[in-house]
């Protein structure tokens, strides 16, 4: 009885799979979006697009571009570093016009994929590539961090300020060194404690460890902590609220996350950079090479809004504005930790 059933069941399954596979190839082309439109794919970092910080800023930028231009937009949130490359290759394979990698970890991946698909355009945030079809979007984070460092030093009552970095890498040292120099410029006797969440990609996505480090720093007297740690930074926000201290946000304007406890945010306008590169592509002006965003163009800066206007006195703001002008004019040189 069962014996006769075997080939029949097998045949049915195989026919079903073949049918789905056959029709699926057409569906793949359809699902990939109208090829007559400009198609943009974005591959987020491990933090994911809801990290309220770095990736969130990029997501805002592409969303805005999708509203303003007739483009097809798809995104991928790989979640672990090993899945970044397959996601990027998936976009390239179906012929997307611009593929954006968010975060320095994707630099070698973008380079490898861009080499295999020289006719398609790529962009990388926080990374640098020499390939002609790759636009490298980088920021002067050290200069923005200098400004929040000054605010931190002018706000602290204990003379101790903290820094919680995400992954222990040169890019985040840029934040740390700028912050420390800014704090010293405002108060030469300031004590800066710094810690990093970890040495792997997971360090961007570990709010528990972020909170632990912040609590430890508060224990050592820190009353203002700058969190440059992606999703892990949200743990620092928690600690600040719990112990009634101040935290400084990063990348996105995070002043609203814990109102009253967020002194300011060192915004890095990843959204503007991403929007700009899509708009360039749509208007046939896309150029590879390095695009730098800094203080003069608002690429980095401090976030002031209704949530923190009462936290920072006008004379502190005036001092920060002066420093900003001096940095732009080149009178203050902030160390770029990546160019040592």
């Amino acid at each position: 009885m069962l014996r006769q059933k075997v080939p029949w069941t097998l045949g049915l399954c195989l026919a079903l799979i073949a049918g789905l596979a056959g029709s699926g190839c057409n569906n793949l082309a359809k699902a990939a979006g109208d090829p007559k439109k400009v198609r943009v794919g974005i591959v987020f970092d491990s933090g994911g697009k809801d990290d309220r910080s770095f990736n969130a800023a990029a997501y805002r930028g592409v969303k805005r571009a999708a509203k303003d231009f007739p483009i097809v937009l798809r995104d991928a949130e790989p979640g672990d570093p090993a899945s970044l490359e397959p996601a990027m290759r998936a976009f390239a394979e179906v012929g997307y016009d611009l593929i954006i990698g968010i975060g320095f970890a994707q630099t070698p991946i973008v380079e490898a994929v861009a080499k295999d698909y020289p006719k398609q355009n790529f962009a990388i945030i926080d990374g640098v590539s020499d390939l002609p079809n790759v636009a490298s979007l980088i920021f002067k984070e050290h200069e923005g961090s200098f400004l929040v460092g000054m605010i931190a030093a002018r706000t602290t009552k204990t003379g101790v300020v903290g820094f919680v970095g995400g992954m222990d890498v040169p890019l985040i040292h840029k934040f740390e060194v700028g912050y420390e120099e800014g704090a010293r410029a405002a108060n030469p006797k300031i004590v800066v404690i710094q810690n990093y969440v970890g040495v792997t990609e997971a360090a961007w996505n570990n709010p528990g460890k972020g909170k632990e480090l912040a609590v430890a720093q508060i224990g050592k007297g820190a009353d203002v902590i700058f969190a440059a740690a992606g999703n892990s930074g949200l743990g620092v926000f928690d600690a600040a609220e719990q112990y009634q201290k101040y935290v400084i946000g990063v990348d996105s304007n995070q002043n609203w996350v814990k109102p009253g406890f967020v002194l300011t945010s060192m915004v890095k306008r990843v959204d503007n950079a991403v929007y700009q590169i899509i708009s360039d592509l749509v208007n046939h002006r896309f150029k590879g090479g390095i695009h730098v965003y800094g203080l003069p163009d608002g690429g980095v800066g401090i976030a002031m809004d209704q949530y923190n206007e009462k936290l920072i006195p006008p004379d502190v703001l005036r001092q920060v504005e002066e420093a900003k002008a001096k940095i732009i004019r080149g009178e203050i040189k902030v160390t770029n930790a990546m160019e040592k």
Partner: peptide, 20 residues
């Protein structure tokens, strides 16, 4: 239907699907 078409179709295109 569309989802399964995409799921199976993308896994058996030549060369990328089968290769991967």
């Amino acid at each position: 239907l569309a989802t399964y078409q995409l799921l199976i179709g993308s896994a058996f295109t030549w060369p990328d699907g089968i290769g991967y």
